[in-house]
């Protein structure tokens, strides 16, 4: 029999330990909670898949999931095209390049809860700059603490303000890596601006764009801090996204079992949609 060198295991051990402690162990704790019931004192009762069934049948979960998908869809539909357009209109060389880059990077440097607090104050109807301007100067009825539509618009605009830069910076990096020769070839062929975008810039940006879409999907799908600070999920439940609902169940009601089951379902959905995006966006590359 051929002797197999088993030394390789030794080399993957550090990664294994690292992954175990930052992913596997916490995750298994959640799995542990999701199949048991506890009334404190570290006493557990076996519950099987009851919590999963309960969550999957719960209308509250369906509503939160629906809001979550709507939110993420709107975020992607706005931020991706907007990011591409901004990246395309940024200068490629000269004095304005660093100015644009720093301006773009600024929103991303602000801590998430500060972003939520900033927009909260900014949009309050009586004291906020925007809220006051809309209600008292322009005479538009705008109150995100009472009107669900206004709350949604505010949450979306806040996220666009905070995260479009990520798409911009990634796309810009893709754009500046295109050699001048391509633009010259297009000029000689007499290609229109649209053709240059469709046949040179878009294909060359595709890889970074895939990353941008994936990151924006995952971040917006798992978003918590900013909308929580801004609206607290309200008015009513109108802006209660999945993660906000999850925290309410886990820490508000202290229903650890259902919260754990919901976490796992939440994680599975995120993973599945990410896989779907990635597969769809890269399916032509392998051939």
């Amino acid at each position: 029999m051929r002797k197999v060198n088993q030394k390789g295991w030794f080399f993957v051990l550090p990664v294994l330990i690292l992954v175990a402690f930052n992913a596997l162990v916490p995750m298994m704790t959640v799995v542990n909670y999701s199949v048991q019931e506890t009334f404190g004192d570290n006493v557990f009762f076996w519950q099987g898949l009851d919590w999963f069934q309960q969550i999957l049948r719960s209308e509250r979960f369906h509503a939160a999931l629906g809001r979550q998908f709507l939110f993420t869809a709107m975020i992607l539909a706005i931020e991706v095209p907007l990011g591409v357009i901004i990246a395309l209109s940024m200068p490629r060389k000269g004095f304005w390049v660093p100015v644009c880059l720093v301006t773009m990077a600024l929103p991303m440097l602000i801590p998430w809860n500060v972003v939520g607090a900033m927009w909260n104050i900014f949009t309050l109807p009586d004291i906020g700059l925007l809220g006051y301007l809309m209600n008292h100067t322009l005479g538009i009825d705008y109150n995100m603490t009472q009107d669900p539509v206004a709350a949604w618009i505010t949450v979306i605009v806040m996220d666009v303000w905070h995260w479009t830069s990520l798409v911009v910076l990634l796309c810009y990096a893709g754009l500046v890596s295109i050699p001048d020769a391509y633009y010259q070839a297009a000029k000689i062929d007499g290609a229109s601006n649209w053709s240059v975008f469709r046949y040179i810039q878009l294909p060359k940006m595709k890889q970074v764009l895939t990353i941008a879409v994936l990151l924006r999907f995952m971040d917006s799908f798992n978003i918590y801090t900013e909308p929580f600070v801004l609206t607290g999920g309200g008015p009513g439940n109108s802006t209660t996204l999945l993660s906000i609902d999850l925290v309410k169940i886990a820490l508000g009601q202290f229903d650890l079992g259902p919260a754990a089951a919901m976490s796992l379902i939440y994680f599975a959905i995120t993973l599945f949609v990410s896989w779907l995006f990635y597969t769809l966006m890269t399916r032509n590359d392998a051939k």
Binding site: P179, Q184, Y199, K204
Partner: peptide
């Protein structure tokens, strides 16, 4: 114009 780099429309 034919360049030193291979310039073709990628897609």
């Amino acid at each position: 114009l034919v360049h030193q780099f291979f310039v073709n429309y990628p897609h």
